[in-house]
Amino acid sequence: MHTSEVLTAKEPGTGQHPYRLQLILLMISSSMIFAAYTSAYIVRRDEGNWLEFALPVALAINSAIILVSSGTMQWAYMAARRNSIKQVRIALILTFILGLAFLVGQWNVWGDLVASRIFFGGTDANPSGSFVYVLMGVHAFHLVTGLIFLWVVLRKSLRYEVHSKQMLSIGNATIYWHFLGGLWLYLYLFLLLNH
């Protein structure tokens, strides 16, 4: 290697760990799914024959839950930076439980929708309702992957592998969790404004 040679070009790399970059790319990719659905929603709505209905109130509660879970996730991250291993675990467990609660809440919203005769499919279904199910369902699927990720990080932290010198996994989990929360808030707001 010619170490004596002066290299004019900058050193390669972004300074980001490859896993971090991969996560960001996958999040961009997922966003495209929702961009597609929300634009399809608008295109379809503007064609008429669109059933109007009020969104279940429980959605607001679920949104609050996921907002709080972003807070606990951030708490876990900051605790890891301070090396408070115990707090990391508590915060991660809290986030996990809140995530589960969100999923259960979403499931119940589906129940509410069915109760008010807004169906996913079948003769009585209108795309306006089906879209709500699809948006919630595809988001819930992403949230499940987020829960799996949380689980992995939690196990790491139980083995003392999450602390100020090993921030990669919890850092990635935090980014992903905020992404999922932000995504949901976007969807909720979108549905509120466009139904």
């Binding site: 399809a40 379809r44 996913f120 499919g121 079948g122 003769t123 279904a125 209108n126 795309p127 089906s130 879209f131 699809v134």
Partner: peptide
């Protein structure tokens, strides 16, 4: 897939 198998009408 939903239109084909789950009765939606997208």
């Amino acid at each position: 897939i939903f239109d084909r198998s789950f009765g939606t009408s997208f």
